[in-house]
Amino acid sequence: MPQVVIDRSRCKGCELCFKVCPKKLLRRSSQLSARGIYPCEASDPTACIGCLQCVLVCPDVAITVEDDTDDEQPTRK
């Protein structure tokens, strides 16, 4: 199952990902990050369909999508 993972430390809170998520899973966190902003969070990470729209628009590479059905190790090329 795909699962959206947000790096709170890299998110700058631009919120561009909110409207591209077809499942509307992404929203503003109620907790300040170390940057002093309210970063993005996923309301239900496991409801992610792995479309990668949010990954495409994120300017800060703060979003990755993991898929535990994939055996491939998360190694860098």
Partner: peptide
């Protein structure tokens, strides 16, 4: 893993403003 950041990109935060197209 469905998406992995490219190896050619350093795993660091940039100085760009929120929503900037450079990223």
């Amino acid at each position: 893993m469905k998406y992995q950041p490219p190896h050619a990109l350093q795993p660091v935060s940039t100085h760009y403003c929120a929503g900037c197209g450079h990223g």
